[in-house]
Design a protein around this nucleic acid. Structure first.
Length: 459
RNA sequence: GUGGAUGUAGCUCAGUUGGUUAGAGCGCCGGAUUGUGAUUCCGGAGGUCGCCGGUUCAAGCCCGGUCUUCCACCCCA
């Protein structure tokens, strides 16, 4: 174990068995995306650092993987900074990183998408619906269900303000998890309702602090939430104005009248409530997933401005969300394109994988493995098998010939380890008689048939 | 980024108050069976005990540092 090679922290290898399961998730999601009219898009692993910085908040900037400038990176450092360093003065780490690096690995798929839309605005027909399934990187500290390299599966519609898009996305989420046979709850809220609550409290400028505290309600309880708001400098008066929020319970239909009354004086809150009403009415109860209003749902306040979603599994032990999204009114504004409202969702494939594995929801037959292995008895027999191999493959059956004429035990073990269903044996005897001995690995049963009957046995 | 735990064979883990040659199960390789895997029996290989340094006559075990993995926080998929 002395010089065993390894991979960077928070990254993973995926074995063939794992890849078959991962591919199953990806193709399920992709098929649903396409069914809803989304088309594929890919963007580079690296973006210009300036494209990414400042888009994910202060915390997010720290988590962006920067790529060191190629060649002698030191040469790109400005004279001013060099001087400071040689004098032993402290340089802000962000500033130094900015001088040593001009590229970074993408942190999510949404910002590169916004960049793409702005850059190609004249070629795109709006509303533009794209999906994107690619890895993203975060310099976070790894934990269960948290990796430094992981895949996101995004679908966004940009260039349409219609709430029908939100409705469609809710239906899409329902379809994906129905196809994966997983019971989930889709939580919804509207950022405008949260803004309205901040407005009512008298400290509208503190929405973010308020909401990040409120978001932890089910985790740390009401008292700790209020304590956190206090330490963040929110006044006691404001906190007591927020109080009704903690007393809300029940379904959307039950909560809605209370919210309307409580937030009557806030026009923005009323708009949010109307949006939610539209979504709830249109979605109804038609798909398997439960749609639930959650006034304490916050997420992604950096760019979300309207509806927000989060999906949690009702099966298994995954604490985090397995899918999330929302509406953003001005994502492209920072790149100079105004008035481009969009709404999107992102599936966390890695977490979905963990849930499906834990709850044993992967289909038994994932395909991908060979159905029949031709044993190799030597050059003459092997050459003869090539003809049969072609016939079997032309019938659409995955088949392979063991490449070396090694002893049978090894060839059978190969078939067993690889989960191959049948082994076709053509040795000296079979060759002479024009037959093939076929063994079914699972039952251990074996019979000799004419070569032309091989297909009917293995298919 | 803050705090805590962890690391012994390919994998999962034993290893006494510091004391001779560090063990087991599984896996791997070979044989029993020169045409049969999964099952059975027999045999074998494989470890600078994460890495660097320190204490000691003596370190897998004690101390310091470092890296990894895991847990909590922060944040998030």
């Amino acid at each position: 174990m002395a010089n065993m090679p390894s991979i960077p922290k928070g990254t993973r290898d995926f074995s063939p068995a794992e890849m078959l399961r991962r591919k199953y998730i990806f193709r399920t999601i992709e098929a649903v995306f396409q069914k809803y009219g989304f088309l594929p898009l890919e963007t580079p692993a690296m973006e210009n650092l300036s494209t990414l910085t400042g888009k994910y908040g202060e915390e997010g900037d720290r988590l962006i993987f920067k790529v060191l400038n190629s060649g002698d990176a030191w040469r790109s450092v400005s004279g001013e900074v060099r001087e400071m360093l040689t004098k032993g003065e402290e340089v802000h780490p962000g500033r130094l990183a900015g001088e040593l690096s001009e590229k970074a690995l993408r942190y999510d798929l949404t910002v590169p998408f916004a960049r793409y839309v702005v850059q190609h605005r004249n070629e795109i027909t709006f509303p533009f619906k794209r999906y994107q399934i690619q890895p993203v990187w975060r310099a976070d500290r790894p934990q269960k269900g948290r990796y430094r390299e992981f895949y996101q599966c995004d679908a966004d519609v940009i260039g349409s303000k219609s709430l029908l898009n939100e409705v469609e996305l809710v239906e899409l989420i329902g379809d994906v998890f129905a196809a994966l046979d997983l019971q989930v709850v889709i939580k919804v809220n509207d950022r405008k309702v949260l803004s309205g609550i901040a407005e009512i409290s008298g400290q509208p400028e503190r929405v973010v602090d308020m909401v990040t505290a409120i978001d932890k309600l089910d985790k740390i309880g009401r008292e700790k939430v209020e304590e956190e708001m206090r330490t963040k400098g929110i006044t006691d008066a404001a906190i007591s104005e927020i109080a009704p929020l903690f007393e809300l319970e029940g379904t959307w239909m039950e909560q809605r009248p209370k919210l309307e009354q409580w937030l009557a004086s806030s026009t923005i809150a009323q708009e949010g409530l109307r949006n939610l009403s539209t979504i709830f009415n249109a979605v109804g109860t038609r798909n398997g997933a439960t749609l639930e209003f959650d006034p304490t749902l916050a997420r992604g306040l950096d760019y979300y401005t309207g509806a927000i979603f989060e999906v949690k599994s009702q099966e298994g032990n995954m604490p985090g969300s397995i899918c999330g999204g929302g509406r953003y009114d001005d994502l492209t504004g920072i790149f100079g394109l105004k008035d481009m409202s969009g709404v999107g969702i992102s599936f966390g494939a890695d977490r979905i994988y963990d849930v499906l594995l834990e709850t044993n929801k992967f289909p038994a037959e994932l395909g991908g493995s060979t159905r029949v292995l031709f044993a190799n008895f030597g050059e003459k027999e092997a050459i003869h098998c090539l003809k049969l191999l072609r016939t079997v493959r032309e019938a659409g059956i995955a088949a392979e010939l063991y490449p070396d004429p090694v002893k049978m035990a090894k060839q059978f073990k190969y078939a067993d380890d690889k989960g191959i269903s049948f082994v076709a044996i053509i040795g000296e005897n079979e060759l002479k008689q024009g037959i093939v001995t076929v063994k079914e690995m699972k039952s251990g049963e074996q019979k000799a048939v004419k070569e032309e009957d091989l297909l009917s046995i293995i298919s």
